[in-house]
């Protein structure tokens, strides 16, 4: 049955219909044609003796696999250069340097990392020392065997940790044949940053890399910033930080340790005491640079809060400390990320 429609009403219905049709078709085209990036993840177990996780938003499986392969290859390349335990054919690496005492044509990344280590040594008054390799090696072996190192041996080895004995004038040379270098406080953060730069250069916009807990983020998720949970050393999460473009690194006494006679001996050695640092249970650092965040978290773990605050201020970083009683301390801008 047809009814008579007043002219004004007819125009208004037509107007509404047109508007609605525009909206409907726009949304249909939008939902049908726009490639909404999908979340992808990969994990590698063969770099830096730890778990590396890679999460990214990509348009297709193939695109993600391509980025994942590039990231993995880059991390493997850097792992081989900084590895202090193994050599890899003709590659001049850290292990070869420690064994032979010199490298004639070291890779530029190794030179850069050692120069960075020297800078951190002077900035932290020796609390971050890449020349502590012989002491750290003894502790490593003792942890594996669940026994304490001989104090006399520790003291003896500490006489071979002078960073001034690293010469960079012609290649790299260690003047003290008993000394060895260890990049545990720097290598993962540096490598993650270099690998992230490679991905950014190739155009990947939204991704995060966690290299043994050293988290580098770039861009965002569709739902917002990347969420990094920070563990309470006694269990559970103490907080989460939300970042996009920053790196987050935590050093804690609960990550790698051995219990001997009911006492926990963790893996971060205070260069002054030669024993596991006792200032904090954990220190979390947020920084624009992954390499800096890695170095700062280890350095702050081995110093009091006042010294740590001065250091992070200089590097425009933020930090959160948890002490032996579970008390939590934050730098001024840390809570902006929570």
């Amino acid at each position: 049955m047809c009814g008579k429609v007043p002219l004004q009403s007819y125009y208004s219905q037509t107007y509404i219909m047109k508007k609605l049709l525009i909206v409907v078709f726009s949304l249909m085209i939008f939902t049908a044609c726009e490639a909404v990036p999908k979340r992808y993840s990969a994990a590698y177990t063969d770099v830096f003796d730890t778990v590396t996780q890679f999460t990214a938003y990509c348009g297709s499986d193939e695109e993600f696999e391509e980025y994942s392969d590039i990231l993995h290859d880059e991390l493997l390349r850097l792992h081989e250069i900084f590895d202090i335990y193994l050599t890899y054919g003709d590659t001049q690496n850290a292990c070869m340097l420690n064994e032979n005492g010199s490298l004639e044509n070291p890779p530029p990344e190794l030179v850069e990392l050692i120069e960075s280590g020297k800078n951190w040594y002077s900035e932290t008054d020796g609390q971050l020392n890449i020349a502590l390799g012989s002491v750290l090696s003894l502790w490593h072996d003792c942890r594996e065997n669940a026994e304490l190192p001989d104090p006399d041996m520790l003291k003896n080895l500490s006489g071979h940790c002078d960073i001034e004995n690293i010469s960079m004038d012609n290649g790299i040379a260690l003047a003290d044949p008993e000394m060895s270098l260890d990049f545990g406080a720097l290598a993962k953060g540096y490598a993650a940053e270099k690998a992230a730069e490679t991905l950014i250069g190739l155009g990947l916009e939204n991704f995060a890399i966690s290299c043994g807990g050293n988290v580098v983020t770039h861009g965002k998720k569709p739902s917002g910033s990347w969420e990094i949970g920070i563990e309470n050393p006694d269990g559970g999460l103490i907080t989460s930080v939300f970042v996009s473009g920053e790196s987050v690194v935590t050093s804690g006494d609960y990550q790698r340790f051995v219990e001997i006679g009911g006492v926990r001996y963790h893996h971060i050695i205070d260069p002054k005491t030669l024993y596991p640092a006792k200032f904090w249970r954990s220190v979390t650092v947020i920084s624009k640079s992954s390499a800096e965040a890695d170095a700062l978290s280890t350095a702050l773990f081995c110093m009091d809060q006042k010294s740590g605050l001065e250091l992070i201020k200089k590097h425009s970083a933020e930090a959160m400390w948890i002490d032996q009683n579970g008390e939590v301390y934050r730098s001024e801008g840390f809570s902006d990320y929570e």
Partner: peptide
Amino acid sequence: RITGEGPDFVQ
């Protein structure tokens, strides 16, 4: 590794 709702990474 655990995936699903929650933090992207835990450290």
